[in-house]
Design a protein around this nucleic acid. Structure first.
Lengths: 364, 364
DNA sequence: GTGAAAGCGCTAACAG
DNA sequence: CTGTTAGCGCTTTCAC
């Protein structure tokens, strides 16, 4: 039973049916270079065992035909998609404010581009859909590995991805040590907060409050912990804290809560810039001036931070670099390589106009 | 030549090699249900010609085995990936401020989820990489279709995707009629600006300036055009305009430019909220109060808008709905269906504290 | 060095 | 209704 494949191919190539050109395949390239498909494949997979001359000929043929291996076919035969997945869960409001997400994405892309991996993204709203997204990625074999971001305390996704057989990289503050075997690419949430507290202390503040972000996230906890620990070190016992959820509305509420305290703080460190800015607005509404009566520190350094009145003092992380590092690490994990040694740039503490000297000088 | 497949399969299923379980395939499901692979395939592709009983049996077998068709294999044999691509080009600064991008993404996901399509994302910085991204999507057969966003005047991507044989949907203001055959999902940039101008006119403003966003984008042009046209209709000849690029810094510069005019405007409509907020800051620096001396209108209604001082009056589009509509349209195009009739919600004009009555009453 | 041939897991004619 | 069979385009032993 002779295969009719080659014959048909010759024919269709010769005619080149008008209107709908057939996709160029590895076979066409092989024919043009006068070699077999295997050789073409070898060349495109950087495998030894092809003479330089043939190699050149093949490369040229591919170029002439504008051929590139089909990711589909390759995925099937190699059992790898050369793609990784990112599932983002965000409340609608935060979606368009949180600077983390787009910056991280940009960083991830730069990291992936170098290895020619594609990114499959899914944005979800609730935990059930989130789980389903990971399951679908795995079941349908859409991706080779996934990022785990916005890690929660006691996050069950570690087990989920493990049971699904997906490679993964965990993106979380270094201070937290999530219960997982997969690689962790951590940023330093601690140092920034520590520097903020010291900065305020140096300005004479002794009642330094904190407005926490959404409960249950490890980065929320990390920031709170850093605040507490630093106050401890400075021998400050006062703990003016309010829980919020990263939204503007919650920042407003939490600010009023702290300012309503019998002895309100003279400075507040917020879990993100949005809440800090809402806080400034809330204080202004009460006739409390920033920074004269109240110093405010944000977290993120959103592009708007310099432009609000007064310009916001805040903590900045290099999220783009973080994303790139996470991507590098994930690709290495997927390919079974040793995880690369990557050093992330240190956090920045950006002093602007929203922090100032405490009104009453400290007693000690 | 008897196929050795079945025999091997039986064997490997029986042993279930420890440590590394083989992937469940359509064959396993077929065996378990006592039918052929085709039938399983039919059931999972909603094709007629399968009795209800067999259908149930197959579904049950698949469920027992936890099987789901492999997207990889399916993509290869159907010549469809069931995935669409989005290439985003953004300057680094705007990446984390522009609310369009995350909201659009969220909308796209909701639209795609219904049809079980995946989204492949690529973030790029420059035009060359952007082109390469589309080319790669096509060559590697990563996606079946693409979104075209941030459409530029005389955008060459229309031809590019056409020549690459990709289905596409153009996401651009309705007022612009891009030179393309592909479906256009348009939002109404015009009405919002028109309402803003009328609002300011009603407050007594007669010199209403405009700070344009980055040149070359159709939405920048659309907004400028709406501003011009509305002033024309109101019989206002004055045109105080400055070009910026959507960044905070450019907003500051453009604001000073307008305020330095011999007869500075008493109100300014900005191309986005970031520039508007930078504008408020710039005015404040010059001792010009908002809204007493200058009224300010933004565009986007970022979540921060209500929290700045004064709260920002701005124009809001339902970008999430837009994204969902674009996704629906693209999927329809990819599948060769008629494009769905979708109605987008109207723009909102949100009046807050940054606009107020003009100081000097109009003469006419 | 190079080529032939057997898959990867699914879809889609085409026969029964 | 149901089963057979030939691909989809590439990778990968295994011979030569």
């Amino acid at each position: 039973m002779p295969s009719s494949g080659p014959a048909r191919r010759e024919a269709s190539r010769a005619t080149d049916a008008p209107g709908h050109r057939r996709r160029v395949t590895i076979g066409d390239v092989a024919d043009r270079a006068g070699v077999s498909k295997s050789l073409v494949s070898f060349v495109f997979n950087d495998r030894p065992g092809v003479s330089v001359a043939t190699r050149e000929r093949i490369l040229q043929a591919a170029k002439d035909l504008g051929w590139q291996p089909s990711a589909r076919a390759r995925a099937l035969s190699r059992n790898k998609t050369q793609a990784v997945g990112l599932v983002i869960r965000r409340e609608p409001e935060l979606l368009s404010t949180d600077p983390f997400f787009p910056q991280f994405l940009a960083g991830v892309e730069t990291g992936l581009a170098q290895h020619d991996y594609a990114l499959v993204l899914q944005v979800v709203g609730d935990p059930a859909t989130e789980r389903a997204a990971y399951e679908r990625f795995a079941r349908e074999s859409r991706v080779d590995g996934v990022f785990l971001t916005d890690v929660r305390v006691a996050d069950d996704r570690h087990q989920l991805v493990a049971s699904l057989g997906l490679s993964s990289v965990v993106v979380a503050p270094t201070s937290a040590s999530p219960d997982t075997d997969s690689a962790v690419v951590g940023m330093d949430d601690t140092t920034g907060v520590r520097r903020a507290v010291h900065h305020l202390y140096a300005l004479g503040h002794r009642r330094i409050g904190h407005v926490m972000g959404a409960a249950g996230y490890v980065h929320t906890e990390a920031r709170k912990q850093a605040w507490t620990n630093t106050l401890d070190e400075l021998g400050i016992r006062d703990r003016a804290i309010a829980t919020a959820d990263f939204t503007g509305g919650s920042g407003t509420r939490a600010t009023h809560e702290l300012l309503d305290l019998p002895r309100p703080p003279s400075a507040i460190i917020y879990g993100n810039d949005l809440m800090a800015i809402a806080g400034i607005s809330a204080a202004t509404d009460r006739g409390i001036r920033v920074p004269e009566d109240l110093s405010v520190v944000g977290f993120d350094d959103i592009p708007l931070a310099p432009y609000i009145v007064p310009p916001l003092t805040t903590i900045r992380q290099d999220v783009v670099a973080w994303g790139a590092a996470a991507a590098e690490t994930l690709v290495a994990a997927v390919e079974g390589r040793e995880r690369p040694a990557l050093s992330l740039p240190p956090v920045d503490f950006v002093v602007r106009g929203s922090t100032g000297r405490a009104r009453s000088q400290p007693k000690h």
